[in-house]
Design a protein around this nucleic acid. Structure first.
Lengths: 243, 243
DNA sequence: ACTGTTCTGTGCGATAACAAACAAAAGCCG
DNA sequence: CGGCTTTTGTTTGTTATCGCACAGAACAGT
C-alpha cells in the first residue's frame, strides 16, 4: 500500500466520485486514502466481512463467481467508472464471489462506515449509488446472456474493450492463462483467439502483454454487450447515452 | 386483471412483504391491489417507463435479456419470494431486459410512487429492499457463471427446482418450446433432456404440463447454483441459512 | 551464457450443443 | 368422428469448445 495522500487536492479520477455534488464529495474526501492495488490482490472474498470500499483510478478489479469444482467466471469488471464494496451499503453479509485485481494500479480506499453513513444520511450519495447499483445489475445480466449466446471471440473482444476503456494506456499486462481464468475458458482457446486477432492486426502481444492496435476492429468483432453495458454506466453517472 | 380486494385482510403470501415489520407493512397494505397475472403477459420492457411494482404470490416472473438477433436468456426468476420493479427505487431509467409472466397466477400490484416513498422515508423498508437487491445481484451473478460452466441438464434441473419452490403445486403449465426460450437453448435440447429426466423417474410430462415426481433426484442432478441462490434469498429475508 | 521456469503454440480426439428437416403424437373443435 | 394445429420425438450433420499432451519460445536469475 503506497503513500497516503489526502485525496482532497487530487483530481477526481474516479468517475463515480466525480459524479458527486461538491458538498457530498467534500464530506467524504477527507477519508479517502490513495492506495496502490497490485495485480492479483484479493479485495473481497466470500467468507470475510468487508470493511472497506475501493474506488479504482487506474486499477481494474474483476468480480467473479467460483464454482465448487474450482471453475470460475467473471460477472463484472470494475475500474475508474465505479466502486467495489456495494454490500457495505446494502447492509447484507458478504455475498458469494470474489473481487481480485486483474490490472494493477491505483485507487482510493474508504472506510466502510464512512460510506455507509454517507449513504444513509446524504440523499445525493444515496441517489447516485442506487443508480450505480442499477447499472451493475444490468452489467451482470448482460454478462449472463452473453455467456449463453456469444462466442469466445466476441466475448474476448468485448472484454478487451472494457479493459481499454478503464486503462490509462493501450497495453494490458496480463498472461493468456490469466485471461482464460477470468473469462472462464481454456487457455488454449485464448491463445487461438488472440492469434487470430493479432493476424488481423487488431492487437499485438508478447509474453504477458497485450496491446490494442485497432480499436474499431475490436468493436466490430465484439458482441453488442459491450455497448449496452457502457451505455448503462453512462446513464447511471448522468452522462449522455452514446448516439 | 381480477377483482381488487384490499390486501389488508389477506395473508401475506409474498415473503418479501411478510418480512416487513407490521408498521411498515400497514402503511403499504392499503395500496396493494390483488391482481391476476396471466401466462405470457409482459410487465416490464426496455422502452417503457415503469409505474408499478409487483409482488407475485402464485405467479412467477422471468427476467430476461434479449439480444439483437432475438436470442434471449433468463437471468433471474421472481416469485413469491420477491418483487418486480427494483428500478422504481433505484431511481434510474428502465433497464434493458424484459419481465414476462412464465407461470400464470396471482400477485399484488403497487403504485411505483408508493413504493418509492416508502423506500425513501421508511428505514425498515429501505433496509429490507437493499438486502433483497443484494440477493438479486448474487442470483444474477450465479446465473452468469452457471451459463458458462454448467450443462443444459444441470441448468434445467436447477430451473425446475426454482419454479417448484415458488409454485403452489408440483405441476408446471408450460411447453418445452417455452422452457427452451427461457433458458436460451434449443427446443430439441429440452425435449431430449426432459425425456432423460422422465426415463429416470424424476419428472413426468404431457403436452404442456410437467410434473415433478422426485424432487431429491432433481436436486442431485442440478448444479450447486440452485442452493447458493436459495441461501442468498433466505439470508436477505432474514431467515436462517440452510444447514 | 546457461538453465530452469513460465508462457505460448499446436495437434489430436471427445463432447455438448446447434441447425434443419421431418415424423409422430396429442389435443382442439367443428 | 375426422381434420387441423400445436407440441413432442428423432435423425443427421455441423460447430464450438473442451481436455490432454507435448513442443517451442521468451524471459529471469545465477
Amino acid at each position: 500500500m503506497a503513500a497516503m495522500t489526502s485525496a482532497q487536492q487530487m483530481p477526481r479520477s474516479n468517475h463515480l466520485l466525480a459524479a458527486l455534488p461538491a458538498a457530498s464529495y467534500e464530506r467524504i474526501a477527507a477519508h479517502l486514502e490513495c492506495i496502490s492495488m497490485p495485480l492479483g490482490e484479493t479485495l473481497y472474498e466470500s467468507g470475510r466481512a468487508p470493511h472497506q470500499a475501493f474506488f479504482p483510478t487506474t486499477a481494474i478489479i474483476s468480480l467473479h463467481q467460483v464454482m465448487e469444482d474450482g471453475a470460475s467466471s467473471e460477472f463484472a469488471s470494475v475500474g475508474n467508472e465505479g466502486m467495489i464494496g456495494l454490500p457495505l451499503v446494502m447492509g447484507g453479509h458478504t455475498p458469494p464471489g470474489l473481487a481480485t485485481v486483474c490490472a494493477g494500479g491505483a485507487g482510493y480506499r474508504l472506510k466502510g462506515q464512512v460510506l455507509a453513513d454517507a449513504f444513509e444520511h446524504d440523499a445525493a450519495v444515496r441517489r447516485l449509488l442506487l443508480r450505480y447499483i442499477q447499472a451493475r445489475l444490468s452489467q451482470i445480466a448482460q454478462t449472463a446472456a452473453c455467456n449463453r449466446h456469444h462466442t469466445m471471440e466476441q466475448h474476448m473482444c468485448r472484454w478487451l474493450l472494457e479493459m481499454l476503456d478503464r486503462l490509462p494506456s493501450r497495453e494490458l499486462v496480463m498472461t493468456q492463462e490469466l485471461i482464460a481464468g477470468i473469462l472462464g475458458v481454456r487457455r488454449e482457446g485464448i491463445t487461438e483467439t488472440a492469434g487470430a486477432l493479432q493476424r488481423d492486426g487488431l492487437i499485438s502481444y508478447r509474453r504477458g502483454h497485450i496491446t490494442v492496435v485497432n480499436r474499431e476492429g475490436l468493436e466490430s468483432r465484439a458482441c453488442e454487450c459491450y455497448q449496452v453495458v457502457k451505455d448503462e454506466f453512462r446513464r447511471a453517472l448522468g452522462l449522455y447515452a452514446t448516439a
